[in-house]
Amino acid sequence: MAEADTTPPAANALAESQLALRDRLVDAGRLIPTGVAGLFGRDVVFEAVVSGVGALVAAAGEDDHPTRVSYPPLIPKVDFDKIGYLRNFPELVGPVFSFVGDAADHRAVVERLDGDAPYGDLLTQTEVTLTPACCYPIYPSVTGALGAGGAVFETCAYCFRHEPSVDPMRLQAFRQHEHIRIATPDEVLDWRARWLERAPELLSALGLDVISDIANDPFFGRAGRLMKMSQREQQLKIEFLVDVYGDEHRTACSSINYHQDHFGHTFGIHTDDGADAHSSCIGFGLERCTVALFNQHGTDVAQWPAPVRDRLGL
C-alpha cells in the first residue's frame, strides 16, 4: 500500500508556487540550472538587476561615510569557529576540505572515485570556511581600540549556506550587500533606527510590498530555542519581508541584526571607554531582491515600470 501523503496542503501549494517561479526564471533564461538545488548561473539581465540593487544599497548608507572593503567568500576557520557558527547553525556550514597525503592515500581516493563511492572521509579540513554572512571577516580585522565615533563598514560578497531548496528565493550561494556599525550601544542603536526606515523605503520604492517584523535566526536544537526566544524578546533581529508567495509566506529580502557585544567581546574590539564594542549589521540578499523584482514585474525587464528601471539604472 502506498504511504499516505502527510504533507499539509498549504505546504504543497507553497512548494508549487516556488517551483513555478523557479521554472519561470529558468524558462526566461534569467537563472541557469546546474542540477543542484539552490545553485544557479545568472544571465546578464539578472546580473544587471543585482548591480542596480547593490548600487541602491550602497547609496542608501552613503551619509554614514562607510569604509568600503571587499573579502573573498572565505573566512579563516579559526574566526568562523570563534564566532560560534558551527555551534549555532551546524546544518548550514560549509567548511572547505582538500586532499593532503601521499601517492598511496591518493590511490585510495581515486579508487572511491572510480567506484562512485563517497570520499569525504579521506579529505582533510583546510584552514578556510565558506562565508555564511559577508560581514564576518570584518570583525576580526578591527580588533583593539576603536577611535571616537566607532566604525562604519560596507561590504558585499558571495555567501554560502547549505540549505538546498526548490525555492529560487533560497539559494545555497548568494550575494549579501551589508552595512556594518561597530561602536557604543547608543551609537549602534541610532544607526539601526535610521536603517529601520531606510530599508523598507528602498524596497518599496522598487514596487515591492514590504513589511517589517521581529524575527529570529534559525539557531539549532534546544539551546537554540533559548537563543531564538531571547533574540525575539530583545527584538535583536528585524526582517524586511516581501510578498512573493502570498501574505502568509513572506520572505525576508533584508534584515538588520543587533549583536550587542557578541563580536566586540569575541574579537576584543573596544570603545573609547574601554568597554566591549557593540555592533549591528544590515544585509540585503541581492538575489532575493532580484528574484522578488522579477516576480513582481515579470521576467522581461523592458516591461518593468519606468521609475523602477530608472532607480536600478536599467
Binding site: 539551546a223 533559548l226 537563543m227 531571547s230
Partner: peptide
C-alpha cells in the same frame, strides 16, 4: 548575555 545564558542552562 544570550550566549552565556545558553551555557548556564547547559
Amino acid at each position: 548575555t544570550s550566549h552565556a545564558s545558553v551555557n548556564v542552562m547547559l
